[in-house]
Design a protein around this nucleic acid. Structure first.
Length: 215
DNA sequence: CAGGAGATGCGCT
DNA sequence: GCGCATCTCCTGA
């Protein structure tokens, strides 16, 4: 509902909306915005990870101190450290006791551009600022301490907001990036035409692959 | 633009 | 120890 005469403020997503299968949650998250401090990023590329039957998922082999957030309520932030120097961020989408999450792979900075640039001086263009999972967490300043935050809580320092809806015809899907197993599952989704979408690299050997329009 | 190598900490086998 | 849901710098086309 919007007040007459003024645009509706960005609505925060609810836990209930996110308590769905990670593949569905991934499509839902495209176009949504993640806000931390002054910086806000519109999500343009995401990747689904499902517990149980997905060998590429961190929770595939059960609960550990690192992945325990994925076993908690949907809508929370799962941040992990990788390659000895980077952080990656996920939105938890646990449903029916099955752990799952959506990796935030890329986005466009829509607010706090100055701070984002200062955090990523290596970026050669604004489109590159949040191009890739570690860059995205970088511009938002997300680190270990943010692991487990409730993105659906109004008082949270990191919040997930509904943005401009992305039409289904603009959503594209393809294999996941950088993982060594289960690469053939088309659980990566991105907004067609966005310059912030990371270039595809298969885990291990490099080879090009087809992109499919979602229907 | 594509491909290759190095950097670097830690979770898990 | 091994291998990683990566990035940056460098080369060659």
């Amino acid at each position: 509902m919007s007040v007459a005469g003024s645009p509706p403020p960005s609505r925060q997503l609810t836990r209930e909306e996110l308590a769905i299968d990670p593949v569905e949650a991934a499509k839902l998250l495209l176009g949504c915005e993640l806000e931390a401090g002054e910086v806000r990023v519109r999500l343009t590329e995401v990747e689904a990870y499902r517990g149980g039957d997905d060998p590429a998922s961190h929770c595939y082999r059960g609960k550990t101190p690192r992945n325990e957030v994925m076993f908690g309520p949907a809508g929370h932030l799962y941040v992990y450290f990788v390659y000895g120097m980077h952080f990656c961020a996920n939105v938890v989408s646990l449903t029916d006791g099955v752990p799952g999450a959506v990796l935030l792979r890329a986005g466009e900075v829509v607010a706090g551009l100055d701070q984002a640039r200062a955090r990523r001086p290596a970026a050669r263009s604004d489109a590159e600022l949040a191009k890739g999972p570690a860059r995205l967490t970088g511009v938002l300043g997300l680190e270990r301490e943010h692991n487990g935050l409730d993105l659906t809580d109004q008082g949270s320092p990191v919040r997930l907001l509904a943005g401009e809806p992305v039409p289904a015809t603009a959503i594209r899907t393809g294999p996941r990036v950088g993982v060594a197993v289960a690469v053939d599952v088309p659980w990566r989704f991105w907004v067609d035409g966005s310059p912030s979408v990371s270039t595809y690299r298969r885990g291990g050997k490099a080879s090009r692959r087809r992109q499919d329009t979602l229907r």
